[in-house]
Simulated assay, not measured.
Amino acid sequence: MPARVDHGTASGTFSLDGETFDVENNIWVVGDDTECLVIDAPHSVDAIMAVVGDRRVRAIVCTHAHDDHVRVAPELRTRTGAPVLLHPDDRPLWELTHGGPDDVDAWLWDLDLADGQVLEVAGTTLTVLHTPGHAPGAVCLHAPDLGCVFTGDTLFQGGPGATGRSFSDLPTLEASIRARLFGLPDDTVVHTGHGADTTIGAEAAALGR
């Protein structure tokens, strides 16, 4: 059975810099009928598991550490036994949600992500692309066999992710998008952290390579 992409959504909140907003996040699961990877851990373990079903979760791969993407990662790890993966540059954001070095109840992710790392599941591969800007450790996951890239909050339909808050920078984000994403084939489907899909070609035409 070839690998496929399954999708759901979960609603909750995003909090940073003393402000809280209602958000709806996409849930992305890559795998076959037996095993899968979960991309991000937004809001509700039950909503994520409704997409996973009875498959073995090989890993929980976080595109970045804003609380709406990692808040239920510990609970999802407990439920599935799968390790949580995150780029180490996002530790300051992670600690805002899961505690820092002075917190006796602090909890860290299990394994670091690195630029160029290849993750394998169900006979397909996802390559980690470090794309800082929205967050220092933000990553995208390119799945060439599936013709898609999972961009978290780095790139959306309509342009780059949000900046202007702590740990973000628009020039860095735009440079990441041009250097790491706009070299992918134009017909590559962009599966985003929030909202509708787009394509690399559409966003490159709008933003300019």
Rank of each mutant, 00 (worst) to 15 (best):
Arg4Met: 13
Val5Glu: 08
Thr9Met: 15
Phe14Lys: 10
Phe21Ala: 05
Glu24Phe: 05
Asn26Ser: 13
Trp28Ser: 03
Trp28Cys: 04
Val29Thr: 04
Asp32Ala: 01
Ala41Tyr: 05
His43Asp: 08
Ser44Pro: 15
Val45Ala: 13
Val45Asn: 13
Asp46Lys: 14
Ile48Thr: 12
Met49Glu: 15
Met49Arg: 11
Met49Asn: 12
Val52Trp: 04
Val52Gln: 03
Asp54Ser: 07
Arg58Gly: 05
Cys62His: 12
Ala65Leu: 04
His66Lys: 03
Asp68Ser: 09
His69Leu: 11
Arg71Ile: 01
Ala73Met: 07
Glu75Asp: 14
Gly81His: 08
Pro83Trp: 02
His87Tyr: 01
Asp90Ser: 03
His98Ala: 10
Gly100Lys: 07
Gly100Ser: 11
Asp102Val: 10
Asp102Tyr: 08
Val104Ile: 14
Asp105Ser: 11
Ala106Arg: 15
Trp107Gly: 04
Trp109Glu: 05
Asp115Cys: 00
Gly116Glu: 01
Gln117Thr: 00
Gln117Leu: 00
Val118Ile: 08
Glu120Val: 02
Val121Lys: 01
Val121Phe: 01
Gly123Met: 07
Gly123Thr: 03
Thr127Gln: 13
Val128Phe: 06
Val128Cys: 01
Leu129Asn: 00
His130Glu: 02
Gly133Arg: 03
His134Met: 12
Gly137Met: 06
Ala138Tyr: 06
Ala138Pro: 09
Cys140Ile: 03
His142Gly: 02
Pro144Tyr: 04
Asp145Pro: 10
Leu146Asn: 09
Leu146Arg: 09
Gly152Ile: 01
Gly152Pro: 14
Asp153Cys: 06
Leu155Tyr: 11
Pro160Asp: 13
Gly161His: 09
Gly161Lys: 11
Gly161Trp: 06
Gly161Ser: 08
Gly161Gln: 12
Ala162Ser: 13
Phe167Gln: 03
Phe167Arg: 02
Asp169Phe: 03
Leu173Pro: 06
Ser176Gln: 09
Ile177Glu: 12
Ala179Ser: 10
Ala179Cys: 02
Leu181Ile: 12
Pro185Asn: 05
Thr192Asn: 08
His194Ile: 14
Ala196Val: 13
Ala196Gly: 10
Ala196Asn: 11
Thr198Lys: 15
Thr198Cys: 13
Thr199Asp: 14
Thr199Gln: 13
Thr199Arg: 13
Ala205Ile: 11
Arg209Ala: 15
